[in-house]
Simulated assay, not measured.
Amino acid sequence: MILVTGADGYVGWPLMLKLSKTYPNERIVGVDHFGRRKWVEEIGSVSAIPIASMEKRLESARKHGMNNLSFVKEDLTNYEKVCQILQTFRPRVILHTAAQPAAPYSHVHAPLANFTQENNNRMCRNLLWAIRELGMEEDTHLVETTTTGVYGAPNFPIPEGYIEVKTDQGMDLLPYPGLATSWYHMSKMHDINNLSLASRLWELTVTDVRTAIVFGTGTKETRLDPDLATRFDFDFYFGVVANRFCAQALAGHPITLYGKGEQRKPMISLEDAVRSLVKAVELPRHKTMKVYNQMTVLASPKELAEAIQKATGNQGIQTEVTHLPNPRKENETHQMEMKNEGFLQDLLPDGASLPLQDEMEEMIRDLKPYQSVFVHYRDRFMQVE
């Protein structure tokens, strides 16, 4: 049995579907409390691609032969409920994708900064302790999606989780220090420390998949039926840069770059992110903590803007690119290097599904029917004062 947390989310729902197709004879159970739907509504935005209720989603999945899906509505910050879920299902693998995932949302004010860290860190601790107290250490593999944002922007190639430290006394392999630049990213740094501690204390098999910026409109499975679609956020708070740029272009709004926009960032398509998480299910029990940098491409916001400008041009839509003063403290020309050999070898051996330009072309084609939504909510592209 496989458990997916955050099963109603942008990544979690497509993951449920792909797991169902990959493991048709195994029960796939999702858990969520629909927080993402509420948070986006509270900031005055919507998913551009309409998303069905969980009941309709599961009904549609069954029509397409995915009969092994179940769902539990629950808040994983409640430790007793977490214990009940794990005791009931005894999962061999837990894919923990649940989180408040938006850095801008975590910076609105102190209560949301507190909420982000308390919510994310409590869920992780609850899962770790429930595994321990239910005696599931030997049988359960915990996979969590953290973030490449914990690395910051160093001026050397970023390793996959660990860094060699050499002194006159010798050499040691140490966890990469947390240099996160947001309250959200720091919440994931806290998770990483707790995952590492639990693995060392209890010999838990833990896989930390450090997820890059995920972009895209769907996967092979979500495109089978409109009721299987995953959400698509494009607002300032929850819309990642590629998704927001596509929305701006289709709304006739200039693509807005902060500063020069030349800093390279790690990215991965939704299809490849989900494919690699499904592959993580096959990893053997290793009783340690392994780290993978889940990324396929390093690209700058400027490069993304130019790719989207070309894609919209191919659809007969002329798009302007403008530069705004950068509200962030960052090196606007930083050329990040990130190692991902382990990720490509173990979790994405077939490589990326499509080149970046092709991905942008696909996104623009998929999103064109929703131009009116982007126009209506164009005030959500920028931060609300």
Rank of each mutant, 00 (worst) to 15 (best):
K290F: 02
E320S: 09
D139W: 00
Y377Q: 08
E59H: 07
R62V: 13
K265Q: 10
A251N: 00
P327W: 09
L324Q: 10
C246Y: 09
E74R: 11
Q117R: 14
R125V: 12
A212H: 07
I213N: 13
M171K: 10
M189N: 06
H109Y: 15
Q357P: 08
E262N: 13
L179V: 04
W129G: 05
I364W: 00
A180W: 02
L142I: 07
K63F: 03
R90Q: 14
T167W: 08
A247N: 03
T145L: 10
A180P: 01
F245G: 07
L134I: 12
G65V: 09
D227V: 03
G135V: 12
Y105E: 10
P14T: 14
N194V: 02
A110Q: 14
V31F: 08
K368A: 01
E160S: 09
P226K: 13
V150L: 12
I158E: 10
E362G: 02
P266E: 13
I85N: 08
T230C: 14
R132H: 15
E133I: 07
A153Y: 07
Y237F: 14
A247F: 07
N78C: 09
L195N: 08
A102M: 04
K81L: 11
R132Q: 14
L86N: 13
M16N: 06
R37L: 01
L228A: 06
A130H: 05
R285H: 06
V241R: 01
R90W: 01
K73G: 00
W129C: 09
T145D: 05
T222H: 09
Q383N: 11
A229E: 10
T207V: 11
P177D: 09
L86T: 15
E330V: 08
P104G: 02
Q357D: 09
Y237S: 10
